[in-house]
Design a binder for these strands. Structure first.
Length: 556
RNA sequence: GCUCCCGUAACUCAGUCUGGAUAGAGUGCCAGCCUUCUAAGCUGGAAGCCGCAGGUUCAAAUCCUGCCGGGAGCGCCA
């Protein structure tokens, strides 16, 4: 539509169709029209008042209107175009019906490896992980709808000091407790370890001893305990990922990269890319990236070197066109150092390795911390949200056999939507009270809107003739919003921004609810058309939500 | 000290990439709407030096510079 308007204008002025298309905007008020072209920019070259230019152009254009455009007018220096709403309605309904609705094929034939979530064993899976996981999964789905072949990859720290602390504390104070694949329990031991270590320096020596034993793998009992607790941690994630609707094609662990990381570091040193004083490091000061240490002075390997090894491994396992890592903001510099090092090492895929950082999740009062247990664990949070959802259903007498299943989907929608609606790079304030509210700009509101639409479609008895008599404003607004779906998907794809889709879904649902209140469907003269419109809304919202990794329900 | 991110209504955020018409939502607050398709809904209202100061421009929340405030990071944690 925009293109047609641009062509129309191009006949009258010197700008190209593409230039005009970029200038065309959507008027702020409904009554002003559907598209607008500002004439300010023409004032200089034409040496005329832009208001006069607008008036003149309208006179010329008015004579040549194509059938899609019902009227053209000017207001100030703006030329406003009114499109034919019946044609718009027909176009939108036809478009939504197509299987490939929403797809722009921007990633056709390309393969992309996306790494996200990255919880550590022996530690909490907290709301920060929920943000990263929701974000990664949503991006993966956006890549998929645009035609990419997507490989989802996870990477977990299963070695290092935090694990030594955990094992130390377990053996010393919790040995009688049975090992459990329970996130809350596992995180609790770690918090206890930190607390006990705070007041006693001798304890740290015991921990160091255990750390050496873990690394050397010579102590059978420690090995055994490490292996078992590691597995327990990993198992605790199965439940989380299945609830969140995420599955990974490959899960890498840090312990796999001890040797590879060492080798990579030594190799870089041999090639004179890395340097050595007491440690082996990359000097990246030239690039304003400081110094990046790869191996400690005692020769043990750091996560920097392991990340390089991981990059090679990913390419070996999955030869792709693009590699993306989704990580917390605090690791930004680390990944800049990684990408620069890969480039200097002539890593073949360095140019297509990128990372996306997301902001921390904080309490209104300040920072969260896994060390002292001042954070919100996934399992605690999700069961709390689940209970609120279930109570809500019961209060509205929406009981029934599958109440738990519906409550669970509502809870997940609430959690994921709240994580995705905000710009990823911004710090997120996590207010537990607000997280449990289901009204307004929330996941449950979206599911509710969807369920309402489904209910209408379900209740429709016989097929009525689709006849567009006269379109009311709420109908037009809804149609235009649906019409904009694929543009939003494209923008979300290009900017790695699921929040754009989340915001779109909310606005879409708002428009549907306005329509719902002012335009009766069943039994009305326009039943045929309105049913189609309701269904088009359902399809669009359903697709949008699925791009966010949110499942819909047919009934609340 | 240096680098990066943020600062928009009481609170949480859109809008900033790509400058345009009267700066928008949600929550909370006030006033209405359930004998009609699900009230987790809808309608209306109050509420803004868009952090501050300059600059560019016909036009700045949006671009540039400086400052202030908050957050994150900056050599052997991940």
């Amino acid at each position: 539509m925009k293109n047609k308007i641009a062509k129309l204008i191009a006949k009258e002025i010197k700008l190209s169709v593409v230039e005009i298309e970029n200038l065309i905007e959507i008027p702020p008020m409904f009554e002003m029209g559907d598209f607008a072209f500002p004439c300010f920019g023409l004032a200089k070259s034409l040496k005329k008042n832009p208001l006069i230019i607008a008036e003149d152009l309208v006179k010329k254009i008015r004579k040549k209107l194509p059938r899609e455009i019902s009227n053209v007018d000017f207001k100030g220096a703006y030329i406003n175009f009114f499109i034919d709403k019946k044609i718009l309605a027909e176009d939108v309904l036809a478009k939504v019906k197509k299987k490939n609705f929403g797809e722009n094929n921007l990633g056709k034939g390309k393969k992309i490896v996306i790494e996200f979530s990255q919880p550590n064993t022996h530690k909490a899976f907290h709301v920060g992980h929920i943000r990263g996981t929701s974000l990664g999964e949503s991006l993966a789905r956006i890549f998929e709808i645009e035609g990419n072949k997507v490989v989802r990859v996870n990477y977990s720290g299963d070695t290092g000091m935090h694990i030594a602390k955990w094992i130390w504390c377990y053996r010393k104070y919790h040995a009688k407790e049975k090992l459990k694949g329970d996130e809350t329990w596992i995180a609790g031991i770690y918090v206890d370890a930190v607390k006990r270590l705070e007041n006693n320096e001798n304890f740290q020596k015991e921990v160091d001893e255990i750390n050496r034993k873990i690394e050397s793998k010579k102590d059978k009992e420690i090995n055994d305990l490490w292996e078992k607790t590691r597995v327990a941690s990993i198992q605790s994630w199965d439940k989380i990922y299945s609830e969140l609707g995420v599955r990974f094609d490959k899960h890498y662990f840090e312990s796999e990269f001890d040797n590879g990381g060492k080798k990579v570091a030594e190799d870089l040193l041999k090639k004179n890319i890395a340097k050595k004083d007491d440690a082996i490091f990359m000097n990246l000061k030239k690039y304003n990236l400081g110094v990046w240490v790869l191996l400690r002075r005692d020769g043990t390997v750091l996560y920097s070197a392991k990340d390089i090894a991981l990059a090679y491994k990913k390419v070996k396992d999955f030869f792709a066109d693009r590699y993306l890592v989704v990580v917390g903001d605090e690791q930004k510099m680390h990944f800049e150092q990684l990408v620069k090092t890969l480039e200097l090492a002539k890593f073949p895929k360095s140019k297509v390795c990128a990372f996306l950082t997301f902001g921390m999740v904080r309490f209104p009062e300040g920072k969260m911390s896994s060390r002292n247990g001042q954070n919100v664990l996934y399992s605690d949070f999700s069961s709390e949200v689940f209970n609120v959802a279930k109570e809500g259903l019961e209060a509205r007498s929406c009981g029934g056999k599958d109440i738990d299943e519906r409550a669970s989907k509502i809870a997940i929608a609430a959690i994921k939507y709240s994580m995705l609606k905000q710009d990823p790079k911004r710090v997120m304030i996590f207010d537990s009270k607000k997280a449990l509210a289901f009204e307004g700009d929330t996941g449950p509101y979206l599911l509710y809107s969807y369920a309402r639409a489904s209910s209408i479609v379900r209740k429709a008895k016989s097929k009525k003739i689709v006849k567009i008599i006269d379109l009311k404003n709420p109908e037009i607004k809804l149609l235009k919003k649906i019409d904009g779906f694929e543009d939003v998907v494209a923008r979300a794809y290009e900017n790695l921004a699921p929040n754009l889709i989340a915001n779109y879904c909310f606005e879409l649902a708002q428009m549907f609810n306005e329509f719902y209140h002012s335009c009766p469907v069943l039994g009305s003269d326009e039943e045929g058309f309105r049913l189609k419109l309701v269904d088009a809304f359902r399809v669009t919202l359903g697709k949008g939500l699925s791009l966010l990794g949110i499942e819909t329900i047919e009934e609340m």
